[in-house]
Structures are given as C-alpha cells and as structure tokens.
Design a protein around this nucleic acid. Sequence first.
DNA 1: GGCTTGCACGTACGCTGTACGTCCGTCAAT
DNA 2: ATTGACGGACGTACAGCGTACGTGCAAGCC
Lengths: 215, 215
Amino acid sequence: MTTEPLSRARIVAAAIDLIEREGADAVSMRRIAADLGVGVMSLYNHVPNKDALLNGVAEAVLSEIEFTDDPDAHWTDRVRMQARAFRQIAHDHPRSTMLVVSRQLHSNAGLLPVERALATLRSAGFDGIDAVRVLRLFIAFIVGSLLREVGVTPTFAPVHTKMINAEEVDPALFPEVSALSSLLGSCDHEAEFEFGVELLIQAIAVHPSRREGTR
Amino acid sequence: MTTEPLSRARIVAAAIDLIEREGADAVSMRRIAADLGVGVMSLYNHVPNKDALLNGVAEAVLSEIEFTDDPDAHWTDRVRMQARAFRQIAHDHPRSTMLVVSRQLHSNAGLLPVERALATLRSAGFDGIDAVRVLRLFIAFIVGSLLREVGVTPTFAPVHTKMINAEEVDPALFPEVSALSSLLGSCDHEAEFEFGVELLIQAIAVHPSRREGTR
DNA sequence: GGCTTGCACGTACGCTGTACGTCCGTCAAT
DNA sequence: ATTGACGGACGTACAGCGTACGTGCAAGCC
C-alpha cells in the first residue's frame, strides 16, 4: 500500500470532511492530522497556518458552485439560476457554508460567481453602478438566508426543531409572536428562499434605473 | 474603595468592552477575569459557561435596539425606521454585532423586535403567513448586509481597504469585474443599505398578497 | 455558638495553535 | 561512488484555552 503523499488539497478535503461530520468547532490541526494518519506538524509543510487552511476550505467550497449559465436565456431566469446555484452549496456542504459566509476571501476564488452575476445584470440593462448595487443586494439576501438556513440546524435535517417555544411566550407582551408562533417555529427554507428571489427579481425588473428592452 | 460585587451584568459588560476593543478572538474567560480584577473561576458563579456568556452578550446588544415606533405613521415609514434601528446596533457595537448575527438565540431577548415588525406588517395589510414571510426576507437582507458591513472591516473604519485588487484581476478572464473593480473595491454601506430597504419596501408595497387601503 | 449557604479563589487536566530542531529519503554535483 | 543540499515528515515544547473540583472565608439564620 503506497500512501499518497500529503498535499494541500488532501488536507483541505480532510478538513471539509471533518467539518461536515462534526462541525466547525471540531476542527483542529491535531484532529485533521489524525484523520489523515499523519503527524501534526507535517500539515504545516503545505499550509502556513490554520487560518489559511480555513480560507482554503472556503475557496474549495465556493469553487464547487456549478453555473450552467445560458447567455441566451432571459435575464430573470439567469438570475434565478445563479441564486439557486449559490444556495446549492448550502445543501452540498451545509456546515462548511458557514465558513464561506462568515469569512471574506481576499483571493480570486470567489470572483467567477461575481463575474457571471455582473455580466447577467449588465445584459439585463443595468449600468455598472446599479449592477454592483443590485448584486450586493442579492448577496446580502442570499448570505442572510443561508445563515438562517444553516445556522438554525447544524445537522441540516429537513425537519427543524422549533426556535420559539409557544408556551414560553407571554401573549400579553407579544401578541403577534404568540399568535404566529407555529409559523415562526417552522420554516420551509426552500419556499422562503424562492419567495425572496422572486420578489427581488420582480423588484429590480421594474426598477427605474434599468434600461428596458434588453435580454 | 468598596469593590462592587461581581454580577452577570458586569461580566457581560466587560465582555462587550473587550470585544469592541480587541475583537471577538480576544475573548477568553481568563482575559475577562483579568480585566475585572478577579479570579477566573469566580466568573462561573454568575455564568454557567463561555457559550452562555456570549449569548448574554448577544442578548444585551440586541436589547439595546431603540424603537421609536409610531403606530400612527405610515407602515412604510415604520418599516424603514425599524430596519434602521436594527442596523444602528452595528454602529454602536460593530464587533459584537457579528456575535448577534452568527448566533441564534433561544431566549426571548430577541422577541421584541420580532413583535414590533409583525405588528407593523399586519397593519400594512399582510396576513400572518405573509407577514412572517416578509419579515424573514427583511431579516435575511439586514443580516447579510450587516455581515458584509462589519465582517469586511473588523475595525469598522469609515474608509475601507479594497477587497479586490484591480491589478491582480485578469481582464480577459473577468472583464466585468475588472471594469468595475473600482466600484467593487469601495462600498458606501449606508447608501447600499438604504437602496436595499427602499427596494424591498417598494416590492412588498405592490405585492399581491397585501390587502390595500390599510395604514 | 453552631450551621448552612454562597461566593471568590487556586490548582489541575486535557485541549488548542504553532515555533523549533531533528531525522531521513531523494537527487545533483563532484 | 561519495558528498552535500534539500524538502518533507515528525516529536517535543510552550503558552494559552475552558472548566471540573476542592478549599476557605464571610454573612445570615437557628
């Protein structure tokens, strides 16, 4: 049995595995080394430090986004698809996604999605300033959504425990919360996300800064 | 000099101070104890563990939100005000805000903003389901915005270092990013936030699920 | 007085990230 | 064939972490 030599890619892969299995808190250099059957300090031959390793994880996850962008499709469909593609990584790597959204990358790994999005928005009739504006709006919404979606349930199980316990809410103090506690307690993330995306698309479609008549 | 007795409130306050001064990474039980001039383990008489302490920090920050909600105002103004009030905590406690948004609370401390928001949306003509939907949309946007706003620059300095280095971007690979690099490199968070809020308000104002004619 | 209770504290254990030195296999130059 | 350089794997060591546990002291109650 020839043991494959250690490499940055293998280390990052082991880190992602560990994060998905036991959560980001379980990540330690010692633990990753143990999982790889390797000495702790050997990792430092391929990764400068833990922070860089986590950046590597974020890059790897981000670069897995699959864009099947069809330049001939209507721009609303392209936006929809890109938003969904972004959200898809939350399903493939739920716990690693927290790393991606809570850590901004200084590398170019996250640039491809930005490029695609800007091109789409430009083709939709926005000038540079507004394309960036709208992109940031979408990113804020998507990141916020993923944070709720992944943060609420580390296990990412389809059925969620309630975050609001109906019995503990005083109806006199919080009448609305109390009345809607069953709705607040459960959340169909998929539907919630689609609702937001459609509303945003609708909103920017009629936005005055967009030039009409473009694909 | 009579030293004021230790208390959960003093510990939480010291933690917030420390977070704002040196960042969340600097927080340790030992460090907080040292700042309070107290033994490490004395903290555990008032706080069960570090996680609960951080929850306390999040609660304290969240409960500082000032709502000057005028029930007679137009619902669009009320929504605007509440969104801004939420964002205001990011200016008062920038680094602690990261804790608030990246940690969901199981306590009732965060319930008052939810109650206010739901009441406003109900008065705007949304039924329960849609009020929750719209609230979640707003929360996602606000949380995502704050994450960018605070996460990008831990120091929260008014002027930001560029996240995208124009020279490092290959114009052939990323034409849009390259062309818009100056716009992408700087961000007027205030304007960006207002743009998003106005667009969202506009979008939900014309949403078909809203009953018209309400205040 | 005696007794309970609560709080401040010191010690100790098993973790963490990582700086540093060592050892060994490979390969180029002599 | 010998030597030397070099890169990678590794062990040790250190400072710092959260916190379980035991101890001692002061106040309140009988």
